[in-house]
Nucleic acid binder design. Structure first.
Length: 190
DNA sequence: CATATGATGGACT
DNA sequence: GTCCATCATATGG
């Protein structure tokens, strides 16, 4: 069951924390790939210099101002990065999915990736899009309605500690720690 | 059209 | 740990 619109239409940090432990699923023609979200980062709007919504709207980032629950996919350093928009209409925000614990379609993910070791399949923002075959084709998709690409609750555990740190790779970060990850999980990126 | 610039990954020491 | 290839965008001429 996809997460509801209201799940995404909240404070971006809260959504980033609560996305941990959910599963991201991509259905392909005859199979399913996906895994458990173990690392996220929150990005706000104009008061967040690291955010793509801190300046003007562009073709790509404009959906950050629209309703929450939409896929935002863009290219950085020759990698597609997958985000979900947050907050209600007119308030910009998005959560970057930085790492997954691979669960479904291991063989397919290995085919998609340059590095085949399980540990490196989905342990980074550009790695997981490669493994799940997420590209700009998915940009703008409504994750609350799609039956092809979506995020859902997991059966099992909420038994994990959340740790936080500063965001990775940004040139100008805020005081607040806006990167969240599951403590001790081996697929959290370094 | 030309160029600069990354929410990075991978190979290597 | 270090180094650098990568390519879709954005932006300016």
């Amino acid at each position: 069951m996809n997460l509801y619109r209201k799940f995404y239409e909240r404070d971006t940090e809260e959504v980033a924390r609560e996305l941990l432990g959910k599963e991201l699923i991509h259905k392909l023609k005859n199979s399913i790939v996906g895994g458990k979200i173990v690392e996220t980062e929150a990005y706000y709007g104009k008061d967040d210099p690291a955010s793509r919504a801190s300046e003007k709207r562009t073709k790509i980032n404009k959906i950050m101002w629209e309703e929450g629950g939409t896929a935002l996919v863009y290219m950085v350093h020759a990698n597609w990065l997958f985000n979900v928009t947050t907050e209600v209409q007119d308030i910009p925000g998005a959560v970057l999915i930085r790492a997954l614990e691979p669960l479904y379609g291991m063989e397919i993910m290995k085919k998609n990736r340059t590095r085949k070791e399980t540990k490196h399949l989905t342990s980074g923002p550009g790695k997981l899009t490669q493994a799940l075959n997420i590209t700009k084709d998915h940009h703008g998709k409504d994750l609350t309605k799609s039956d092809e690409l979506f995020i859902q609750e997991m059966e099992d555990d909420k038994n994990f500690e959340i740790e936080s740190s500063h965001r990775i790779g940004v040139t100008e970060d805020l005081e607040e720690k806006l990167r969240f990850y599951i403590a001790g999980n081996e697929f959290v990126s370094s």
